[in-house]
Design a protein around this nucleic acid. Structure first.
Lengths: 160, 160
DNA sequence: GATCAAGTGAACAATATGTCCACCACGGAG
DNA sequence: CTCCGTGGTGGACATATTGTTCACTTGATC
């Protein structure tokens, strides 16, 4: 992961249509180098995919909310966390979920078609009896859109 | 946005190397149709890009945390939110940020090289004087990895 | 019945890909 | 000091893909 890798990532992020050959021309390096770098980034797990980036709002889900769930900790046939994770994974409106420190046990991001529709989504989430409490926060305006490239720059600038 | 669009998105998400031609063969449709669909999805804003997906952990930032910030609401030269958003945008470790309902004013996701390093990142965030209070929650284990394709399926199945 | 958006199948030149190769430069290990 | 191994270069080749345009067929809408 060096400066060239980051430049490469930037180039492909900004102009996905450029091929390997065009990229090599733009950066003034050999085509084989570009291919090798991309392979290496993928092998290192830095680049995990090249899939299309989807926008929930454009798909009809403009409302985003964050749920903090509290899970029943008692002994149960299966672990409470596993059960809940399984449950959440079956709900398409749940975009991501993870366990967290602090008051809540589980954090998850959900989307909905509208504010009323958010109630439907929350109800789906709360259908799992292992969830004993939940708190909802609605996302209003995006201040910093999801972005990882600045981090890539920092990763090579600060250290390597 | 219909079933074919979703199938197309799935195909490209799973095998990014397949070209337009190969995709048309796999799905048994004309090449022109694939191209037109992809153009349409991009024009509709459903597909916002084809950039490489980056993994912060693989770049040396395995720690993820969520910060809830409270912003000073008093009158100021520029709006408090704008100032803070600007400040956050300059910090590469800030992956995303948005305003929220509820107790806090601003929510943001940050990453760090380690737990001690998280302190450094938080200090950077809190350097902005318009932030009057903050709460930190550390993400432990990912239960549902970020995913939008199930949502795409739901979008066409439930309605259209 | 007319019209429009969308899909098909085909064609073309231009370009990119996958995959070899030999060769050079550098840094670390011995 | 010399011997690799890794990474980069530049070139070659056949094959496959792209961008683009065309004429024709649908199916739904008005």
């Amino acid at each position: 992961m060096d400066q060239l890798d980051v430049t490469l990532i930037d180039l492909f992020a900004e102009e996905p249509r450029v091929g390997v050959l065009e990229a090599s021309r733009r950066l003034g390096i050999a085509r084989g180098t570009v291919q090798a770098r991309l392979d290496r980034l993928a092998a290192a797990g830095v680049v995990t995919g090249w899939g299309p980036d989807l926008e929930p709002a454009a798909m009809g889900y403009p409302v985003t909310a964050f749920l903090t769930l509290e899970i029943r900790q008692e002994a149960s046939p299966t672990s409470g966390h596993d059960r809940v994770a399984d449950h959440l994974a079956r709900i398409p409106e749940v975009i991501e979920a993870c366990t967290i420190t602090g008051a809540g046990d589980l954090w998850c991001r959900v989307v909905a078609r509208s504010n009323p529709d958010l109630q439907r989504v929350i109800d789906k989430v709360l259908a799992e009896p292992a969830i004993v409490r939940s708190a909802t926060v609605i996302a209003l305006a995006t201040q910093v859109p999801r972005r990882l490239r600045p981090l890539a720059h920092a990763a090579v600038t600060d250290q390597g």
